[in-house]
Design a protein around this nucleic acid. Structure first.
Length: 553
RNA sequence: UGGGUUAUGGUGUAAAGGUAGCACAACAGAUUUUGAUUCUGUUUGUCUAGGUUCGAAUCCUAGUAACCCAACCA
């Protein structure tokens, strides 16, 4: 095959439309409802819609689908805008469906005048009963034959606030026996005496999704209105309304939403996790929201790469979380500064190193020369990772053990001579000797060791809190289990380490800094940090061949 | 008992009648002052049954499975 990437089915359609001269340029839109935070599934839709605009020299609008005042809030509007900007996209116009309430009302009046809409006084239960089921046709009710004049008058009265919530609705007059349930006289306007986040108390009737979305697309001259699969049955109604209203013919195309292992992706369920206190807010780093990924240290580039790799198609998919992590590591590996941090410290004392002596050693900041170098202080007392020492070494173990030698990264080779345990059997000190000729960069010792471990100098190390995150759920598909999805929440999804010892250069960390704690993973500074106490989030672990080796047994 | 949509390795995604490719995952090895990175290699697939054709993932017929549709949510 050639170098260029093959097109997805929507790109196929657009290229065909452009080729055929159906449109001179394209216009897409991203239409979130401001009732929750954006998650990784939205990122797929954002990358798709904005990506299409960019690729074909068109534009993309951001339109808040705010037709339900009871669930929508400005807080969500702000977070959504932040997330889209963070991902790196720029919208042509910031619009709101509520901008069109006047126009939409006119459309409804137009429909009534064409005898294509009527006011129904039935209760919600009655309407549901008359609607039939997917396998049984619905039935007409007596309100369906109301006169145009009467409908016009009552609809005006509805708008003027003469009725209470739920007393009347406006319905499109289509076909109660239609095989598509959505075509059985769908409700297009309902009464809600509620405060709207933008229009305040101007309206007490609000259009339903189906009477707002397609019409908004049309008003904006959207050429390709891309949405997820569950809206397929809505397309027939979308087209019907555009045809009857005789307005600009936007077209709807549907793709499969993103599903990912070890998480859930519905705003309703995410809201539940927040409200029930299973996580500490929408941006808790264990959440699949964009604000959580950002806080956890993910880069927008890695998420865009991920969205590119998963593709766009119409079949249900279930993406492996490891693909997202792969994209992340690939990016972080290139940009993260390498530093040393000991998460579970145990003291290492070098017996043949002079008391009070220190040395300044040079270490590279990363694999790329351009990342520069930094100075590390070495001394007689260090901290190393507790798990890097094994009293009775396992097979293929090439870290520290009694009598064994190991390289201290960017420093010397040391040999373990003895160790001390406290009353509870916990190792408190490891005594080593070092090989003076083995200094990194000028090693003349002739000794080669298999293992290299990280360390920090006890005298100059800084204490920091480190938060280790694991997947939020214990099973790949929390919704595939019997019972409530919350039963599969991972009780160990957060491990807080209060006293990690990190090298002093980390004092310069900023919110944007990306680090690799050598051999432990990628980390970033959390917003909970204070001048007196740094807090780091583990963004993702490094791949760990040893852990895999251990697991095999 | 209705209507709609989709079926390609473990997971995704290409192949527009002509060599089933790519990525992740898994496995094996090389390199390595991060058991990381990098590099090399291996395993695994066209839902089923018929048919058309020199040739079928692709076309035809009949099945099967999964998902969606009965909020005054979007």
């Amino acid at each position: 095959m050639s170098e260029e990437k093959s097109l997805n089915f929507i790109e196929d359609i657009i290229e065909e439309d452009l080729r055929a001269g159906k449109y001179k340029s394209i216009l897409t839109r991203f239409p979130p409802e401001p009732n929750g935070y954006l998650h990784i599934g939205h990122a797929k839709a954002i990358c798709l819609n904005f990506g299409l605009g960019l690729k074909y020299g068109g534009k993309t609008n951001l339109r808040f689908d705010d037709t339900n005042p009871v669930t929508e809030e400005t807080e969500y509007v702000d977070s959504i805008k932040d997330d889209i900007k963070w991902l790196g996209f720029t919208w042509a116009e910031e619009l709101y469906t509520s901008d069109y309430f006047g126009k939409l009302y006119e459309f409804a009046v137009d429909l009534i005048k064409k005898d294509l809409a009527y006011v129904d006084d039935s209760t919600a239960e009655e309407i549901a009963a008359m609607k039939g089921t997917p396998t049984e046709p619905g039935k007409d009710n007596l309100y369906r034959s109301r006169s145009i004049e009467e409908n016009l008058q009552i609809f005006t009265d509805m708008k003027d606030g003469k009725y209470k919530d739920g007393k009347k609705v406006l319905r499109a007059k289509i076909d109660m026996k239609h095989t598509n349930m959505l075509m059985r006289d769908p409700i297009i306007y309902r009464i809600k005496h509620a405060h709207h986040h933008r229009t305040g108390n101007d309206w007490c009737i609000y259009p339903m999704y189906d009477f707002a979305h397609g019409q908004s697309d049309s008003i904006e001259n959207i050429t390709h209105s891309v949405c997820t699969l569950e809206f397929i049955p809505h397309r027939e109604l979308y087209d019907w309304l555009i045809e009857k209203l005789e307005i600009f013919p936007s077209h709807q195309y549907e793709f499969a939403r993103l599903n990912m292992t070890y998480t859930v992706m519905s705003k309703r369920k995410l809201l539940q996790l927040v409200n029930d206190g299973h996580v500490k807010g929408w941006d808790d780093p264990r959440m699949p929201t964009l604000s959580a990924f950002r806080r956890k240290g993910y880069t927008p580039e890695s998420i865009r790469t991920f969205c590119d790799k998963i593709g766009v198609a119409k079949r249900e998919n279930f993406i492996d979380l490891s693909l997202l992590e792969f994209c992340l590591r690939e990016d972080l590996n290139q940009r993260a500064l390498r530093v040393m941090a000991v998460l579970d410290p145990v003291k290492l004392i070098i017996s043949n190193y002079d008391d009070g002596k220190t040395e300044e050693l040079i270490s590279e900041n990363g694999p790329d020369e351009a990342m520069g170098k930094r100075v590390l202080t070495f001394g007689k007392e260090l901290y190393i990772e507790r798990e890097d020492f094994m009293e009775e070494p396992a097979k293929k173990w090439f870290r520290l053990a009694p009598g064994a030698m190991v390289r201290l990264k960017s420093a010397y080779i040391v040999k373990c001579e003895s160790f001390i345990k406290d009353n509870s059997g916990k190792i408190t000190d490891i005594h080593c000797t070092y090989i003076p000729e083995s200094k990194s960069g000028s090693d003349s010792s002739g000794i080669s060791v298999k293992g290299t471990i990280h360390w920090v100098n006890a005298a100059t190390a800084v204490t920091a809190e480190v938060r280790l995150y694991d997947r939020l759920f214990t099973v790949e598909n929390p919704l595939g289990e019997e019972g409530d999805f919350k039963d599969t929440i991972n009780p160990n999804s957060l491990d807080i380490i209060k006293n990690a010892m990190v090298e002093p250069s980390l004092k310069d960390a900023t919110a944007e800094s990306r680090y690799q704690f050598i051999r432990k993973g990628y980390f970033c500074l959390d917003k909970d940090s204070t001048p007196g106490k740094m807090v780091f989030n583990r963004t993702v672990t490094l791949k760990d061949a040893w852990a895999k080796e251990v697991k095999k047994k």
